[in-house]
Write a protein that binds this DNA or RNA. Sequence first.
DNA 1: TTCTCTGCAAACGCTTTGCACGGAT
DNA 2: ATCCGTGCAAAGCGTTTGCAGAGAA
Lengths: 136, 136
Amino acid sequence: MKELKKILEEKKIFPSFHRLKILEYLIKNRTHPTVEEIHRHLSREITTLSKTTVYNTLKLFMDKGIVTELTVEGTESRYDINTKPHAHFKCLKCGKVYDLDMDLSIFNLKEIEGHRIMECHVYFRGICRECLEEGK
Amino acid sequence: MKELKKILEEKKIFPSFHRLKILEYLIKNRTHPTVEEIHRHLSREITTLSKTTVYNTLKLFMDKGIVTELTVEGTESRYDINTKPHAHFKCLKCGKVYDLDMDLSIFNLKEIEGHRIMECHVYFRGICRECLEEGK
DNA sequence: TTCTCTGCAAACGCTTTGCACGGAT
DNA sequence: ATCCGTGCAAAGCGTTTGCAGAGAA
């Protein structure tokens, strides 16, 4: 809990209980959760937690660069703690999103065709190994 | 109009007037339009055109592999005529989406970590050259 | 008739906004 | 008193669904 506090304070975010809990969840569960998932899980412990607060907190974290919003799918937003850039894979059958341990250093570009690059995303879609296994 | 008809018939899609018009728009305006944009533009000519039809048609085109849904942003869907795979760049300031002429052949993979790959998307975000120019 | 293309209107689901309460300084 | 984190409820907005009318085969 001490390290979590530090992370927020370094970004000049007041480390409220809710914010610490949400940050903790994101760090411990690197499963690209939706707002819904974060809220559902933390509600067990913090019964008064509202979705609005989850939304507010994630927006704050995004502004401060602590998390990134994934755009692997259109409908709902998923969030990722900022670590080193990595690719994502989404299963079209079960909907799970996997991290891929790929070398993306070729995309460490500052500029392309005159545009200033600030983020790079790579993702794949298909059928995941678990669903392939089941389908046999 | 003859070639357009051919495209649809090859995919076993009945080439109705509306469908041909939407296809034509997508081919002539490779600007990753939203449903809103397609509808707004074509309504001038086809005053009775409904958004539902645009949605229906795009869904049909997607199922048949004529267009792909971009996921560069979370809120609204943008559509791209299927040509060769290419990267996208979205300007965080003006919101425009550019095509990037990058070699993505390294991502011509059939499988990664046991998952079967069917699609690959690469996109960047930042400030586009036009906005950089203005900011000077 | 039968099939399917079309379109209005309502429903839906995720997200944002407005506003008020409550705790901390 | 002021600031700000929190949360309820309502609004917003893109998308989907239900259903009925129109048109082609």
